[in-house]
Design a protein around this nucleic acid. Structure first.
Length: 641
DNA sequence: GTAGGGTTAG
């Protein structure tokens, strides 16, 4: 199938008007000494909080509503916790009867200073509350990620008979995430409809985002299309909804449509567009976005740089990623993680380790759970088993360190399995404080296949088929293992089981970029306009490679067919079609880049090695989880993935 | 006095 992404940044002048930054300095003229001592409000608004507080104390001040209001406002904007606390104490000491308005300010003050318990105490002690005080507290919980507290408080608010307003709904919907997000969110949606707020732009964008995050993209789109007006946030929310679900082409298509319709965008929109481009590995398009972003320096520039690091890495160009990383004036933990993950997925274990050391040395940003995942997986794939184990032990032993999750344990299973220590990996699984997941069994099964451990492989495979009988991939790996061990009866048995139970979820799809167009191929594709030419090329390649020693791995086909038919199926694999297409259309010596939506099969991996040897081409193949850089028949993955 | 979208992994 031919999918062309139109060159959607071609009208740069209208689309991205040049943004000039004006800076001007305002000379503050110093006035003569004031004839009268400054009033409390003047002191506060001049920003001299401490002086204001001192005045307050010295005068044993009779503070009024306006004084408290102004000073608390100042404390909120400066996040001045100690000072605000003193103001609160002053209110209590002088027995000031705060109105709802000021108590709400106190709630906001405490939530902004991340003192949720203090904020809640203020709310709980209020003699009367209104919708704003409830919403301020709900918002405090939501922003800090205390979703269940936010939802509980929302329910309490409803029970108290206070009607939510648009602020409340827009806020509380952001806490509808995770396992029950959709249940809560759709109930709240009903309330919104009843209150006639469905068309409200803030409520609507929060609502469509809730649906998108729950994976209900049709509902999300429905809300979006029903909005009477659109703005940058609602447009970005729907685009990012598609992108985050991996519906990259849809995200870009919608972006183009909205762009034609005159949508405005900002750095968040760019970040979402980059996510979609990364998914497609659309290098040239990504580079264009980079060009525009360079002119779009905003305070959140670091977010965009993080997206760019990731985009270049997912497009196979780590050099560009590192260049951005090195020139950043400020780095967040995400910047480090994006770079570390990049090295790790490209199989560059030593680079991962070096960068991690640099991160610790710089000591500006604390490693988090994702950092450790990247480092452990990098060590595992880069042959640095001992380093990986050391880091894991260190992590377990430290109080201030990262709490190990099941994923971290999974990395260690992978690391041991990859190093050939299959028994040790099994022991490790048995001692974990977690129930093993399908990912963990799957990783060990892969190790059993590579290291030909049929006994453990059988045990692991059986566990896996029980937990996840519908996943066709598990049958394939187990069958590969039996085939490699020459146990043909078992291969037959697995094939029968698969026919009975397995569901092939997603069809294999590969694509390659040529002249800013993505050419997509499905297995045994009959839709691409140049299919005859491509199939012919694959057949030629196969014949040529056989002379050089290529033997088709028929164990990758689980259908009950004769050998000739099996070979025909193998030759129709989408990766081979995309590789052949790349060979036809690119000049000699140019690296070939192919992307695949699933994991690459053993036979195609081997086929790609022959492409690299016979044609002396570098082949870069990105599958679902990692890169395979193949040079002269040797793959960066070390034949283990 | 209260509000919506974003970047790393899976």
């Amino acid at each position: 199938m031919l999918k062309k992404i139109t060159f959607f940044f071609s009208h740069s002048k209208q689309v991205f008007p040049f943004i000039s930054t004006h800076s001007y300095t305002r000379q503050l003229t110093s006035s003569s000494y004031p004839p009268n001592p400054p009033s409390l409000n003047t002191l506060i608004s001049s920003g001299n909080l401490n002086y204001a507080l001192l005045e307050m104390a010295l005068q044993g001040c009779e503070m009024g509503f306006r004084d408290y209001d102004t000073i608390l406002n100042e404390c909120v904007s400066k996040r001045a916790f100690r000072e605000g606390q003193r103001v609160h104490a002053h209110m209590i000491k002088t027995n000031y009867q705060s109105p709802v308005y000021l108590r709400t300010r106190l709630i906001v003050f405490y939530t902004k200073c991340e003192r949720l318990e203090d904020a809640r105490r203020v709310l709980d002690e209020m003699p009367e509350r209104n919708v704003v005080s409830w919403t301020a507290m709900i918002s405090g919980y939501s922003k800090r990620g205390y979703d269940s507290q936010a939802l509980n408080l929302f329910v309490q608010m409803l029970r108290s008979g206070t009607a939510p307003n648009t602020f409340t709904f827009a806020t509380v919907l952001t806490s509808c995430t995770g396992a029950f997000g959709f249940d809560h969110g759709s109930q709240i949606h009903s309330l919104i409809v009843k209150c006639l707020f469905e068309s409200h732009i803030y409520v609507g964008s929060s609502l469509l985002d809730m649906y998108a995050k729950a994976g209900k993209i049709h509902e999300s789109r429905g809300v979006f299309e029903g909005l009477p007006e659109r703005d940058v946030v609602s447009c970005t929310a729907i685009i990012s909804g598609y992108a985050q679900l991996g519906l990259d082409e849809e995200a870009l298509g919608l972006f183009r449509r909205l762009q034609r319709e005159g949508m405005t965008y900002n750095y968040v929109t760019y970040a979402s567009v980059l996510t979609a481009l990364s998914g497609l590995a659309a290098f040239e398009h990504g580079r264009q976005v980079h060009n525009y972003v360079l002119r779009y320096e905003v305070p959140s520039y670091v977010v965009l740089q993080n997206s760019l690091i990731d985009m270049y890495s997912k497009c196979g160009n780590l050099t560009y990623s590192r260049r951005i990383f090195d020139t950043m004036s400020e780095r967040t933990v995400i910047s480090w993680n994006a770079m570390l993950v990049g090295y790790s997925k490209h199989g560059k274990g030593r680079k991962v380790f070096e960068l991690f050391e640099l991160m610790k040395e710089e000591n500006k940003v604390r490693p988090d759970s994702i950092t450790l995942l990247a480092v452990l997986s990098g060590c595992s794939h880069g042959g640095l088993e001992n380093r990986g184990l050391e880091i894991f032990d260190e992590m377990m032993g430290r109080i201030d360190g990262v709490e190990p999750t099941i994923e971290h344990y999974g990395c260690i299973v992978d690391l041991l399995g990859r190093a050939g220590q299959v028994e040790k990996a099994l022991e490790f699984i048995k001692q974990m404080p977690f129930e093993p997941t399908v990912a963990i069994w799957g990783s060990l099964l892969g190790a059993c296949r590579v290291h030909l451990n049929v006994d453990i492989g059988e045990f692991v495979g059986t566990q896996l088929l029980e937990i996840e009988p519908e996943n066709a991939g598990n049958y394939v790996i187990l069958s590969n293992l039996y085939a490699a061990a020459g146990k043909w009866e078992d291969v037959q048995r697995i094939r029968e089981m698969m026919k009975e139970k397995a569901v092939i979820k997603e069809p294999g799809r590969s694509w390659t970029e040529l002249d800013q167009t993505l050419h997509t191929f499905y297995a045994s594709d009959r839709t691409h306009p140049r299919k005859e030419e491509v199939f012919g090329k694959v057949r030629d390649l196969s014949a040529r490679f056989k002379e050089a020693g290529y033997v088709p791995d028929l164990s990758c086909v689980l259908y009950d067919l004769d050998e000739e038919q099996k070979e025909r199926i193998l030759l129709g694999h989408s990766e081979k079609l995309a590789l052949a297409f790349g060979l036809i259309n690119t000049p000699e010596g140019k690296p070939i880049r192919v992307m695949k939506n699933l994991r690459i099969c053993i036979d195609c991996h081997n086929f790609a090695k022959f492409v690299s040897m016979v044609y002396e081409r570098e082949v870069s193949l990105r599958d679902k989880s990692r890169f395979h850089h193949i040079i002269r028949g040797v793959c960066s993955c070390g034949d283990y993935w």
